[in-house]
Design a protein around this nucleic acid. Structure first.
Length: 576
RNA sequence: CGGAGCGUAGCUCAGCCUGGUAGAGCACUUGGUUUGGGACCAAGACGUCGCAGGUUCAAAUCCUGUCGCUCCGACCA
């Protein structure tokens, strides 16, 4: 490609809309342009990089035995009603109506469609296993699109769905995808780690997320440096708080004491009360699937809502409002408690965090504004309905696998794999006859990669002050030819044309910067965009019979003119 | 959905407080001089000051509403 024939609108200044490095560079390097919030046009250069990521994904999915197909982006709501997700996933839907006013859903994902397909086409265990995938635009009405391609209303996803005859075989399919994902991200030049994850609204048994460590990531990951444990903070467990829970009796029965104006853990921990946070029981009032429940945490712990939803099997969870708290317990937040003797109204379910087991000498709210209770012993004074691990892990706590301290870091989720089980196959009737002639639901897995997000994650992870540093595998062009003069017929331009033609003939992705610009402009642009290899051709070096080879981020190396093409080919083919 | 900030030329922004001819730099066009790390000179083209209403002799500027964009939050009582 000749630079003057394409459109590469680089920007010297950063557009005001971009906050994080990768978003700024996407715009500055002329890869994408925004149409509206969360909606982006891929310009020629950006599309080339995107296609390269897609190609890697496609090659690895094919290698893993998955079959590419393409499903409609527009879906009938009926199949979502059958799966039960019409309600649970409704918040992410973009809906449209046709001329008959019938409603359609722009697909946020395709479990319902693929399962409907399989229900019709697969009838025998002999046809299994099957794994279908597609690379397609998804639509999600995100609460807040942000950071360019990171979280957009419309984005490109690779989604795959496996169908197996048994749970054991489904595990094999899952492992194949796990391995394929590791290869995909590695080939994209990304350092991605697999972490244990919650399954969320998709449902299913267990899952892994592929995370790219980055300060700007939207997720938190707890991990052990041994590499033996890593989990999304929403899922992560540890050996518990480093501060043990008090378990020695401090006195007799719960005793009320006045705490005027004290409504926070911190205030009760300060003088004149001096009740340390870990000696307090925090009483959270939640509305869980329309029912009021209490959740008890140690004062210094944070409730992990995702864990709670998973363990309690809840689908909709929100903290209760002040009025709801008052209605249930007769006091406002800050003085709430779960001690039997202070609870007067209807019976409320009480869920308690494991860390409170056997706790004695605790302090909690008295269900009377401005009062707390001390000498609370949980087993004696509180009727706990069920115990769960509900706390959010903190950095420094010990790893359940190795006993080493856990670290917590931020990361970008680029892929997610789920073992689904038979939830969808049962609801959408994807049944097959097994060897004994018995009807069985197919055991499913589903596997997603945010292709556009992966592209941006690569930039987020690989850049410097001058711009993007593309890995060779996904660079829009591998080689940028930079003649410092473009006068037709001049020795410099003649050589540039010759090298250009030879590299093109060899199938190398090469761009010839034939713009009538000063050298500084060409250098700056090539570094901003981040072409892995630059071949500079100027009069000074040509006088010595040389051209200048520069790897992005590396040093300038003179190369003999006659060796230039061979040297570039070595670099491109990775044999250098 | 709540909070905060911002909407002025293609981009980055000034002007707004204190109402009175719409600005700068970059980018763009033409000519010239330059030519190894984002050149210089000259001339030019480019705007319903987000939109709507109001106040006023007069609104980019003040008021109201609205739309859009960005960030934070939407759980810790």
């Amino acid at each position: 490609m000749r630079w003057t024939q394409t459109l590469i609108p680089t920007l010297k200044e950063t557009p005001a809309e971009a906050e994080i490095t990768s978003h700024k560079l996407l715009l500055r390097a002329g890869l994408v342009r925004k149409l509206a919030g969360g909606l982006y046009t891929f310009l020629p250069l950006g599309l080339r990089a995107l296609r390269k990521v897609e190609r890697i994904v496609r090659e690895e999915m094919n290698r893993a035995g998955a079959l590419e197909l393409l499903m409609p982006a527009m879906q009938p709501p009926e199949i979502w009603e059958r799966s039960g997700r019409y309600v649970t996933a409704s918040e992410v839907f973009f809906k449209v109506r046709d001329r008959a006013r019938k409603e359609w859903i722009l697909g946020p994902t395709h479990e319902e469609v693929i399962t409907t397909l399989v229900a019709g086409e697969i009838n025998s265990y002999r046809q299994l296993p099957k794994n279908f995938y597609q690379i397609q635009t998804k639509f999600r009405d995100e609460i807040r699109p942000r950071f360019g391609l990171m979280r957009a209303k419309e984005f490109i996803m690779k989604d795959a769905y496996s169908f197996d005859a048994t749970d054991e075989l489904a595990q094999v399919s899952y492992q194949k995808m796990y391995d394929a994902y590791a290869r995909i991200f590695q080939r994209c030049g990304l350092k991605a780690i697999a972490v244990e994850a919650d399954t969320g609204v998709i449902g299913g048994k267990f899952s892994h997320e592929f995370m790219v460590p980055a300060e700007t990531g939207e997720n938190e990951v707890a991990y052990c440096e041994s590499g033996q444990y890593a989990a999304n903070i929403e899922k992560a467990a540890s050996k518990g708080s480093l501060i043990p829970t008090p378990n020695l009796s401090t006195g007799g029965n719960p005793e009320e004491f006045a705490t005027p104006g004290v409504v926070t853990i911190e205030a009760l921990g300060a003088a004149p009360y001096g009740v340390a946070a870990h000696q307090q029981i925090k009483t959270l009032v939640y509305v869980v699937d329309s029912k009021i429940v209490l959740i008890l945490m140690r004062g210094d712990d944070q409730l992990n809502e995702v864990k709670f939803m998973a363990k309690a099997g809840a689908t909709q969870v929100r903290p209760a409002g002040v009025e709801e708290c008052f209605g249930a317990l007769g006091a406002k937040p800050g003085s709430l408690g779960a001690v039997k003797s202070t609870m007067t109204g209807d019976k409320i379910q009480i869920f308690a965090d494991e860390s409170l087991r056997g706790a004695k000498g605790m302090t909690t709210g008295a269900n009377k504004d401005g009062f707390h209770l001390r000498h609370v012993e949980i087993d004696r004074d509180i009727e706990v309905t069920q115990w769960f691990d509900l706390r959010t892990v903190k950095a420094g706590e010990l790893c359940v696998a190795t006993g080493q301290p856990l670290k917590i870091g931020r990361a970008i989720e680029v892929g997610h794999i789920f073992k689904l089980g038979t939830k969808y196959s049962e609801k959408l009737n994807a049944m097959f006859l097994d060897e004994s002639g018995k009807q069985q639901p197919a055991v499913m897995g589903c596997y997603g990669i945010g292709v556009t997000r992966t592209l941006q994650a690569i930039i987020e992870q690989s850049n410097d002050k001058d711009g993007i540093i593309w890995p060779l595998s996904v660079a829009p062009y591998a080689v940028c030819l930079t003649p410092l003069s473009i006068v037709a017929g001049s020795p410099v331009m003649a050589l540039a044309e010759k090298i250009y033609a030879e590299l093109e003939a060899q199938g190398v992705d090469v761009i010839l910067d034939d713009r009538d610009e000063r050298p500084g402009v060409k250098f700056k642009d090539s570094e901003l965009i981040g072409f892995p290899i630059r071949v500079g051709i100027g009069e000074k070096s040509l006088a010595k019979g040389e051209v200048e080879l520069k790897l992005r981020g590396g040093v300038l190396t003179p190369v003999k003119v006659e060796e230039a093409v061979a040297k570039v080919l070595e670099l491109v083919k990775g044999t250098a």
